[in-house]
Design a binder for these strands. Structure first.
Lengths: 191, 191
DNA sequence: TTGTATAATGAATATTTATTCACTAAAATT
DNA sequence: AATTTTAGTGAATAAATATTCATTATACAA
């Protein structure tokens, strides 16, 4: 008996992300997915009941990605500012390296595919920085009169812009610029 | 002789924006547009050769919107910080009031409809704040060691997040919050 | 009024795209 | 080695959607 190749699901996901990145969900067709993934159109239907399920499972698979990737290199014994910087840069790098995902998620949130609750922002991304903001306030290093959410949005928005402009080649990042960008964020939130 | 009703084009544009806002360009069909605009599907074809042209002209019509809306209430005789605040808030309000447009533009930039050059960011939005940043540096009020583009991105990113979260009901804005948000931006860029 | 030119309609048709399915290929089991 | 079982194929079909066009309605001119 031949076994379903689990890689195929990955190929299909990868192909879909790539195509969506290039032409939006609007431009996505099953035929294109199959071609890009190097298989027959019918094969896609072995792994997914239909297009809707494919899109929804793609979403699920991205959501399930471990959130603690953002905490990589961070330990609470580090001084606050250093810890923040590490996580801040993790976010930036993630956004750059997973740009296709971001594009998909943004379109997914506005698509007719999304049915249920599914809160707008990737909640999973929130937790780590929120916790850190708490700590910063306790240590009197972060403005206490601004609520966590606003501080979070201020940093996240900047990170997103940086990543987007970098990926699209409008404003290319390097070590020095990243350094300065973080410093700007710091100046903004510091007490 | 019956005259082409120019309003109809507006109706069609409005309908399209509304539908895209709700379901992305992917979910857009000519039938839906016609229904939402209160006319027969065939009528849409009187005003636009086909769907592609419709989308592209919608894009054009949005681009042509006057850029000096962002300068409303601003005069160079005002103190720098006040002027910046006025324009900063203009951006925020614009983003909130024209949220449907933003969603369309973001999807358009990643669609197969966009053919030519068409730089990623709405260039028209850039000019006013860039000019102001220049002035701020001259008056020694804004950090000189950070380039204009980065300062711009930092503010714009925050504004976008605020507007998006407000419109989606995740983080609702009020006078006080807007005040604080601007202050954060200010703390970030000030010399 | 009546004639004429153009707008509007929406069912009919063309096109695109999703989905199925009869068939083939490859692995596992006997 | 034969049999069985499931994966893979891609042309055929179904479904969705874009587009056309014969027809009707309306405004204006004569």
């Amino acid at each position: 008996m031949r076994i379903k190749d689990n890689n195929k699901i990955d190929f299909i996901f990868k192909a879909s992300l790539k195509l969506i990145y290039r032409g939006g969900i609007a431009g996505l067709t099953m035929a294109k997915i199959a071609q890009e993934a190097g298989m027959a159109t019918g094969t896609v239907y072995i792994y997914f009941k239909n297009k809707e399920e494919l899109i929804n499972e793609l979403y699920q698979s991205l959501r399930e990605e471990s959130t603690d990737r953002f905490l990589m290199g961070y330990t609470s014994s580090q001084p606050f500012k250093l810890g923040l910087k590490i996580i801040w840069i993790n976010y930036l790098k993630h956004r750059i390296e997973h740009h296709e995902e971001s594009v998909f998620l943004e379109q997914y949130y506005r698509s007719l595919y999304i049915t249920t609750q599914h809160k707008r922002t990737a909640e999973s991304m929130k937790t780590p920085i929120h916790k850190l903001i708490q700590r910063g306030k306790e240590e009197m290093l972060v403005k206490k009169d601004i609520d966590d959410e606003m501080l979070f949005l201020a940093m996240l928005g900047f990170i997103r812009e940086l990543a987007d402009e970098h990926v699209t080649g409008v404003y290319e990042l390097n070590e020095e610029r990243i350094e300065k960008a973080f410093q700007l964020s710091w100046d903004m939130i510091k007490a």
